[in-house]
Amino acid sequence: MQITPEALDILCPMHLLIGPSGQITHAGPTIQKLRRARAITGQRFLDVFTINRPHTMMSVSDLRRATNVKLHLEMRDPPKTALKGIMTPLGSAQDDLILNLSFGISILDGVRDYHLTNADFAATDLAIEMLYLIEAKTAAMEASRRLNLRLQNAKVTAEKQAFTDTLTGLSNRRAMDVALMRLISKDASFAVMHVDLDYFKAVNDTLGHAAGDMVLQTVARVMVEETRETDTVARVGGDEFTLILPGVRDDDTLRRIGNRIIERLQEPVYFQGHACHISASIGTVRVHADQSRSAQDLLSDADLALYASKHAGRARHTFYTPDLRRTFETGEAKNDRGRQPV
């Protein structure tokens, strides 16, 4: 059986014939496009290509031993296109070799670098399907990526909304819970400050909800101004606020912050010419590092201190102490009214 070079060009447009002395005696039409400056035919094969695997080859005898195994080659000239190939003796003389090449994984670079078209590949070659798949998958991936980005943004916005009190822009109870749990799990030292407005109901009742809302917004601004960026200021109820202050070193600092807040909240807020007077009662509990208290206990302690402030005549700031709880519990038992902390 004799196969003509023309038939080989059609079946394997990327093949080479190598003569007995290692010269390229024929190159398929697509391979010819890989070297435009100089005709590939007539050159020594090893001057045009390097074989990297299975091992480096220097001579024609090396080449002859590299038949029937997968070869990894590279063009010597830039852009040093990587190719894979398989070589086998042609005919019975064993002198001539035929080498069939393919771009393998570097197909995309290949078609770009050499401006190849459908016609440069054998009809049975999967190269075009490969390029189609690369493009199709890239397009689909890009569409998915954009969708993910939009969903991610929507999620961030929704989360932000879910953790924000819409009226004041402060954190809400959910955000406060998260901040508290985070500090507890880190065994950090921090303080929890419960702030409850005094006389707020009177503002609402006499001047209406719009006035009340304005007061709450002013209160929020004051508390943000009197605390640090790292503190959490949350509105946890109608006129109840919780401040979480990580890393506070001493009671004096907390006392100062609390007193400043009370002081500033007592400055009247004007609503349509009417002065709104409020104040605040505060209960604070400090947690030392590695004290491991539950969130529930902490909030209950802060409530108790707040209750003591209210009880002592409002506009006060009370620190929680175990004594406070003992006094409270005996007091509760004595008058047996089942009073709950505020």
């Binding site: 995309l108 078609v111 770009r112 401006h115 190849l116 078209t117 390029l131 690369i134 493009e135 890239t138």
Partner: peptide, 8 residues
């Protein structure tokens, strides 16, 4: 239309 003109 060029092959490989668009994809990544």
């Amino acid at each position: 239309f060029r092959l490989g003109a668009q994809a990544g």
